[in-house]
């Protein structure tokens, strides 16, 4: 046989091409029934938990009553988790953090150096000095 495979490879998952799978799979809210630092969390859960659970069927919601300061924890499909302390925080803050967890993919935060990063090669290709007109080439 003439051509042979160079190596065995595995197709790369491109989330969002063809289908989108939400990367956040579970969100845990911890609150305390007694402590004052959980005041905002209690308000948030009272008002919003059922609503956001109905709006986000992809995410499993868990509310844990435990002593200590409140937190919100997101678990992601890549096995990572992110925990955010919500001590003395307003429900608005907690909602913002929930939205952040929901839209996160569980990867560590990193600074994007350019506004667009492509995984594909440039269609135009890179400029080559050997393909210009020979008369116009720089003579050494």
């Amino acid at each position: 046989m003439s051509a042979r495979p160079a190596y065995q490879t595995v197709a790369r998952n491109l989330n969002g091409v063809g289908n989108f799978v939400l990367q956040c799979k579970k969100v845990t809210f911890r609150y305390c029934n007694w402590g004052g630092s959980s005041d905002g969390m209690r308000q948030y859960l009272d008002k919003n938990l059922q609503k956001i659970a109905a709006q986000n069927p992809e995410i499993e919601f868990v509310a844990v009553k435990d002593i200590g300061h409140p937190f919100i924890r997101g678990e992601f499909v890549n096995g990572a988790e992110k925990t955010i302390c919500c001590k003395n925080k307003h429900p608005r803050f907690i909602n913002g953090k929930f939205e952040m967890l929901k839209s996160s993919d569980g990867a560590p935060r990193k600074q994007m150096k350019s506004p667009v990063e492509s995984i594909n090669e440039s269609v135009r290709g890179i400029w080559s000095p050997y393909h210009t007109d020979p008369k116009a080439r720089h003579k050494i």
Binding site: A3, P5, T9, A11, L14
Partner: peptide
């Protein structure tokens, strides 16, 4: 299958290797 299996990327070009390319 189209949406989940075939939407993934493989660089087909990089799969090739040739023994005697010019002869081929």
């Amino acid at each position: 299958i189209d949406n989940f299996i075939l939407s993934r990327a493989v660089d087909v070009e990089s799969l090739f290797s040739f023994n005697q390319p010019h002869k081929e």
